[in-house]
Computed example of a mutant assay.
Amino acid sequence: MKPQSKTVTPSSTQQTVLPDEGYNCLSQVVVEKIPYVESENSAGGLTVTIG
């Protein structure tokens, strides 16, 4: 058995995470946080920018 570890970033479409050629299983999959930025806006609230 030859396991592989992978890291993925969420996207707006479905993803299938499979081991690369030469590996036959996944030992670990790390899903990164969704990248976003919060900033104050002129209305006194927060604007969230994703991506």
Rank of each mutant, 00 (worst) to 15 (best):
P3Q: 13
E38F: 12
T49W: 03
V17I: 15
T7M: 11
P19A: 12
G44M: 07
L46R: 00
N41W: 03
I34T: 14
V8G: 03
S27D: 02
A43T: 06
V8M: 02
D20V: 04
P19S: 11
G44V: 13
V8C: 01
I50L: 12
L46A: 05
Q15V: 08
E32D: 13
Y36M: 11
Q14I: 07
S11N: 08
G22I: 07
G44N: 13
N41Y: 07
G44L: 10
L26K: 05
K33I: 06
S5K: 15
K6E: 14
P35T: 03
E38A: 06
S11C: 02
V8F: 03
T7R: 13
L18T: 15
S5Y: 01
S42G: 02
G45K: 10
N24G: 15
K2Q: 11
N24H: 12
E32V: 01
S42R: 04
C25S: 15
V37Q: 07
P35Y: 01
I50F: 08
S5Q: 10
V48I: 14
S27E: 04
V8H: 00
T49I: 03
T47S: 08
D20P: 00
S11E: 08
V37C: 01
P10S: 02
Y23S: 04
P19Q: 15
K6P: 00
T13D: 12
K6D: 07
V48Y: 04
V30Y: 10
G22E: 05
V48A: 00
T16A: 09
T7C: 05
D20C: 02
V31Y: 06
I50T: 05
P10E: 01
V48H: 10
D20T: 09
V37N: 11
V48M: 11
G22V: 12
L18G: 10
T47G: 03
P10H: 02
N24R: 04
P19I: 14
C25T: 15
G51W: 05
Y36G: 07
N41P: 10
D20L: 10
T47L: 04
Q28M: 10
V17S: 12
V29T: 04
A43I: 02
T49Y: 07
Y36R: 14
Q14V: 12
L26E: 02
I34M: 08
P10R: 03
P35E: 01
L46Q: 00
V17D: 11
V31E: 11
G44P: 06
T47N: 11
Q15T: 07
S27K: 06
K6C: 06
Q14W: 05
K6T: 13
S11R: 06
T13Y: 09
S11A: 10
C25V: 04
E32F: 05
T9D: 04
P3T: 14
Y36L: 14
Q28L: 12
K2L: 07
K33W: 05
P19E: 15
N24D: 14
L26P: 13
E32R: 10
E40V: 09
E40H: 11
